[in-house]
Design a binder for these strands. Structure first.
Lengths: 225, 225
DNA sequence: AATTTAATGTGTTGTAAGTACATATTTGTA
DNA sequence: TACAAATATGTACTTACAACACATTAAATT
C-alpha cells in the first residue's frame, strides 16, 4: 500500500523537465541500527540503470501537500513499518548534477532504531541492513550524505542522550559502551566511561542483573525518561 | 544588473502552481554584521501584500542550473556586492503553508560580514541593517529562521574562529570581547576571556597599539590565517 | 606639574572534569 | 577446585573553568 506511493525514477525525469524552473525535492533517511555487535545502516539497491547494483538511501520525493519533515516520517514508515521514531534533519544537498535524471535536491535526515525491539516490516526485499564500516561506494551522492549524517551523530552522542534509541529496554553498561565504541570507532576506558555516563544522569539502575551470561553478570539499566 | 535576476513574488505564484508536483526551492541568507557596538542583521521590507511592512530575509528562488550553495552566494552578491564571504548552510524549512503564494521550501544560510570594512553596495533602498535584539515579528517564518541561525552561530563561536569575519583587520581584545558579549547576550569576565582566546591560538599579536583613544591604549591583534 | 579618570594587563586559588591506571569479585565451566 | 571472563570500584595527576583584586598606562583636567 505504502509502496505504491513511492515514485519511480522515470516519473522524476518527467517532472523535473516540465518547466525550466522546476526543481524536484526529495528526502533521504539514514537509518542507523545496532545488532550483533555491529553498527548498521538500512539501505536498498538502487533501481536506476546508472547505479545498477549500488546501494542507496531510503528516500522519496516530497509531496506538495506534506511538510518536509512529514515526508521523512512517511518514507520511514513506508520502508520499515515504524511509526514513533526519532528523526532529525541534518543537511540539504543541492548540487546541480547530483541526480542523473534531472534536478533533484534532497534533505537528509538521520534516525536511530533498535533492530530487534521493533519488528521491522520490510516489504521490499531489496532493503537490507549493512555494516556501516563496510560501505564503500553508493549511488548518487549518498556516500557523502551517509558520512555527513554519521559525523553529525558522532558529534551528538556525547552531548545528547540519543543513543538509547538503539538499545533494548534493559541494557548493561557494557553493551552501552560497546555501542559508543562502534559508533565512534574508538576504544574507551571502562572506568572513565562509566563515570562519565553516571555523571550525565541519563540512565536508571534497575536493580536487576544479566542472566545466562558465561561470566559474572552485570547490572541492568534503562534510559531515563 | 544583478537585481534584475531576483524574482518577483508574482512569478513564484505562477511557478508553484504549474504542476501538482511542483515545489519551488529558495534560499534565504541571514547576514550578520557588527557596527557601533551593535550586533546587526541585514533585512529588507517584504514586497508581499500579506506582509506589508514586515521585515524579511534576503532570498531568492534557486535556479535549475545552479547549485544550492551557489544560489546563496548569488543572493549575497546581488544584495550587498560582496563576493568572498563565508556562508554556511543551517537548516531547511519545509512546512506546507510557510509561504502564502504557494509551496516553497527554503534553505537558510548564515553569513558574517564586517559592515565597515567591506563597502556594501546596497542597491535596493529597502535593505537596511537592524539591531538583532530589536527584531520582533517578520514576514513568513523568517523570525524562526533568524532565531535558528542565531542559535547556530552562538553554538559555533566558541568552537570555531568564525567571528573574525565581523571585525576589522586590526582589533583590540576589548573589541573582540564586546562582540562576543553582543552575540551571546551575556557579560564576560575580561581576564578569563583573554585567557580562553589566547589558549585557542586564534589571534596574532601585532605589536601595535590603539591610537586616539581617551584612555590607556590596548594592543592590536589580527586573526591568525 | 600634579591629579584624576578610564581602561589595560596580569596572577592566584578553588572547584570540576578528564585521563591514566590496578586489584578484588562474581559467575559459569572444565 | 581451579580457571576464564567480565564486573565493580578508587586514587593520583592533569587540565579546564570560575571567581576574584591590584598595579600600570596614557590622556584629560586642574
Amino acid at each position: 500500500m505504502e509502496e505504491r506511493m513511492l515514485l519511480k525514477t522515470a516519473e522524476i525525469e518527467k517532472i523535473s523537465h516540465l518547466d525550466y524552473f522546476n526543481i524536484a525535492v526529495s528526502v533521504d533517511c539514514v537509518i542507523f541500527g545496532y545488532d550483533d555487535d555491529q553498527f548498521k545502516v538500512l539501505l536498498m539497491e538502487s533501481d536506476l540503470e546508472e547505479f545498477k547494483g549500488r546501494l542507496s538511501l531510503l528516500g522519496d520525493l516530497v509531496r506538495p501537500d506534506e511538510d518536509l519533515d512529514s515526508a521523512s516520517y512517511r518514507v520511514l514508515k513506508a520502508r520499515t513499518g515504524l511509526d514513533d521514531v526519532y528523526l532529525q534533519q541534518v543537511h540539504t544537498f543541492g548540487a546541480v548534477n547530483r541526480h542523473p535524471s534531472g534536478r533533484v535536491i534532497t534533505t537528509a535526515y538521520y534516525s536511530l532504531i533498535n533492530i530487534n525491539h521493533h519488528q521491522l516490516k520490510i516489504t521490499d526485499n531489496q532493503v537490507h541492513w549493512h555494516n556501516v564500516n563496510d560501505i564503500r561506494r553508493m549511488a548518487f551522492d549518498h556516500k557523502e550524505i551517509l558520512d555527513t549524517c554519521l559525523q553529525t551523530l558522532r558529534d551528538q552522542i556525547m552531548e545528547h542522550p540519543v543513543i538509547f534509541n538503539l538499545l533494548p529496554e534493559k541494557f548493561s553498561l557494557r553493551l552501552l559502551q560497546e555501542l559508543y565504541e562502534a559508533i565512534l570507532g574508538v576504544k574507551l576506558d571502562r572506568r572513565n566511561f562509566r563515570k562519565k555516563i553516571m555523571l550525565k544522569d541519563w540512565v536508571v539502575d534497575l536493580d536487576e542483573m544479566e542472566t545466562e551470561v558465561p561470566h559474572r553478570p552485570g547490572k541492568l539499566y534503562r534510559a531515563k525518561t
